[in-house]
Write a protein that binds this DNA or RNA. Structure first.
Lengths: 213, 213
DNA sequence: AATATAAACGGACCGCAGTCCGTTTATAAC
DNA sequence: GTTATAAACGGACTGCGGTCCGTTTATATT
């Protein structure tokens, strides 16, 4: 005796939400654009006051002066909103590891790039962690969000370049598990772990993985 | 303008819930014991019919013929209920890696034990994964649940025995991240990954970590 | 300017986890 | 048997994420 309650793959009803930070293509109604700006501004303000964990969708709607339905139409879900708020920082990080200067960007040895990736990622999480954690509260996915897929592919590529031939896809998945925001934040917040220690452990782990052929 | 909403460390109000499967000490009122049995029986039935994800606390209360408050008094939270339901399987697994026969239990080489630990854990997660996933939906902790602490300590000990001297505590944390139910289940369910491939990758990872001094 | 229409809007509504607090009851003491 | 009391009980209530659907409106077309 249980309602079947099938899994909502795409929470936004029929039309997928436009959850991007940029104006999202040419055709967009003025009111929609204005409301998105209003909502993003209100969200940032609310987070500044209450923290990301303290933001509720109803409060956001009220502060922005729009209906709750509009909030969900824009962002699809709370996690979608958080991802939108993160998208600039995320894109900047992506740019750095794909096109930036070594050792993070191309030009350095694969192992050095792997080390730099983790170290920078740890710093990134410690800066934007509260948002990142909130963005991962999506009921499903979270592993198949575009950004996460991209990191894993990047790690996989570096592993291959470094000569790790045994199932680099899964190895990249394991390594990225180590870098998940929730884990890192928990270590720092609950155990008072120094960020440098996290970075050191990452260096050690990835070095062993590459060298231990 | 936001309600401060402080973090509920222990959800059960003043007195902690008795969320153990066994009768939990000598002094327990008859009605409480009877209701716990009723609730556990009802929970198992409900999960059989609807899956762990489909179990709601209200439905459980109704099926057991008790009030909703009683359910939360017993188990503290939904995650607490799931942990209680898992506790037998969990204890059995703990017994095997602590006192059982090699290569999982004592007697084998540390690296062999590490490999066996991951392989058995993967099999365990694939068997009880739905429950385990539901048990990890606790808003905070999840890393500091007794069972999780115990695995990490076990991994840490094996790493030390295997000669891994560089921050074995964090290394154990990284390794256990690889084995988290949500990750493993996602790989198997969403990417149709063969369990043997997971096991193979674990073997490879842990071998590299130990050998790559 | 009038009209058509697809898009956006808004807020009542739903289901669920978790809480509160007045009521009931098992147990022990006498 | 009576009484005291701590424990357990139950269900109305709250807050939140998310949905539905009737209403409004921006924009294109004529």
């Amino acid at each position: 005796m249980c309602r079947v309650s099938l899994i909502p793959i795409r929470p936004g009803g029929q039309g997928g939400p436009r959850n991007s930070a940029q104006p999202a293509a040419d055709t967009e109604r003025r009111d929609a654009a204005r409301n998105r700006e209003l909502l993003l501004r209100a969200a940032r303000g609310l987070i500044e006051e209450c923290g990301a964990a303290g933001l509720t969708m109803a409060a956001l709607a009220q502060r922005a002066g729009v209906g709750k339905g509009t909030v969900f139409r824009r962002f699809g879900s709370r996690a979608g909103l958080m991802m939108t708020l993160l998208s600039d920082a995320e894109a900047a990080f992506q740019g750095r590891f794909m096109f930036g200067p070594p050792p993070l960007g191309p030009g350095a040895e694969p192992l050095e790039r792997l080390i730099a990736f983790g170290v920078e990622r740890i710093a990134w999480v410690l800066e934007f962690g509260e948002l990142a954690r909130a963005a991962e509260e999506s009921p499903y996915n979270r592993f198949d969000v575009p950004a996460a897929v991209l990191w894993r592919r990047h790690l996989e590529m570096l592993l291959r370049e470094a000569g790790v031939t045994a199932d680099p896809w899964l190895m990249a998945a394991s390594l990225s598990a180590t870098l998940e925001p929730e884990r890192l934040l928990h270590a720092v917040e609950a155990h008072n772990l120094a960020p440098e220690r996290l970075a050191g452990s990452w260096r050690d782990l990835v070095t062993r993985v590459v060298r231990g052929a």
